[in-house]
Design a protein around this nucleic acid. Structure first.
Length: 298
DNA sequence: GGTAGACCTGGACGC
DNA sequence: GCGTCCAGGTCTACC
């Protein structure tokens, strides 16, 4: 089954794939040509499908080895559209970047879109798994969750994918226990956070997927994110960026290091210094920080 | 409101 | 091989 999705101009699938580290987290996998990607998702019908996304003239092509009915195909198209941010318009961002040499590359490279997971639950869990750990730890914990709780693929893994399972649903996680998450996934103290997130969603106490289309002011949305256990300042800012809101900076150790090297001659800086460095960029400050041409990365 | 300490794991390092 | 230390955000208790 093939789907063609139209992308706004400028667009670069490779720029989306390489926008941040999500491509290295299961069930994402790079395609052989490293310009596209493969993944696995569980549809509302319960079917678990593998698919490959590659770039074509006016957008992207989505290929799957299985035949989907009309509803399933529409859902796959809708989710891939969200994952690639095909609904987003960055013309105002590019206009503001024109006079900043450190951002001169962004429009030509079609940067701005950040690779998203098919569901916000997946993005929330993965974001929690990035906190207070090395990147290798995030990869390990994510793979462990997918292997232990992900729904098994209907068919063969798409080319390039080493996984045969989708990311676990909130329903699957909600059925497990904190101890199992600690033992199986080595999630440590994050286990109760992720279990509570899944159980609150399943009980109807928490609804997160509607945040994708919410029009509520960003500070209000941020408050709701911060009320979720395990999501603090860094994680909420990261999630807001995935939701297309760039007013807050995901300040972590890397951000402090980059700002220190860029403007403070390597001297230690705090979160306030990072905020001050991008204060003039308003609603775009998150993207400016993310795509800034840093002096050096060590 | 600000701050200190605990949380948990893997990796680096010294012995 | 073993023990110790450190890095990485968030939460909670305390002031």
């Amino acid at each position: 089954m093939d789907l063609s999705l139209t992308a706004p101009s400028p667009f670069s699938l490779e720029s989306v794939v390489r926008s941040h580290g999500w491509i290295r987290l299961a069930p994402f996998a790079e395609d052989e040509d490293r310009a596209g990607f493969c993944s696995i998702m569980e549809l509302g019908s319960g079917r678990v499908v593998g698919f490959r996304v590659s770039e074509e003239d006016d957008g992207v092509r989505v290929k799957s080895d299985v035949n989907l009915d009309a509803d399933e195909a529409a859902e796959l198209a809708e989710r891939v559209t969200w994952m690639l941010g095909l609904e987003q318009d960055f013309s105002a961002f590019y206009a503001r970047c024109k006079n900043e040499p450190k951002l001169a590359h962004v429009e030509a490279a079609a940067q701005g879109r950040l690779l998203r997971s098919p569901t916000l639950f997946e993005d929330f869990v993965k974001t929690i798994l990035t906190t207070n750990t090395a990147w290798s730890g995030t990869i390990r914990m994510t793979e462990a969750l997918v292997e232990a709780y992900g729904a098994l693929l209907d068919g063969t893994p798409p080319g390039g994918a080493g996984h045969a399972r989708a990311f676990p649903s909130s329903a699957m996680i909600a059925q497990t226990t904190e101890q199992q998450l600690r033992d199986v996934g080595k999630l440590g103290y994050r286990a109760p956070y992720i279990l509570e997130l899944a159980q609150r969603i399943e009980s109807g106490d928490l609804e997160i997927e509607s945040s994708r289309t919410s029009t509520e002011p960003t500070p209000e949305l941020r408050k709701r994110l911060l009320a979720i256990k395990g999501i603090g300042g860094y994680a909420s800012a990261s999630l807001l960026m995935l939701l297309g809101r760039y007013n807050y900076l995901p300040v972590d150790s890397w951000a402090r290091k980059m700002v220190s090297q860029e403007w403070y001659d390597g001297q230690p800086v705090g979160a306030d210094d990072v905020e001050a460095a991008f204060a003039d960029w308003g609603e775009w400050k998150g993207l400016v920080y993310w795509f800034w041409d840093w002096e050096q990365v060590i």
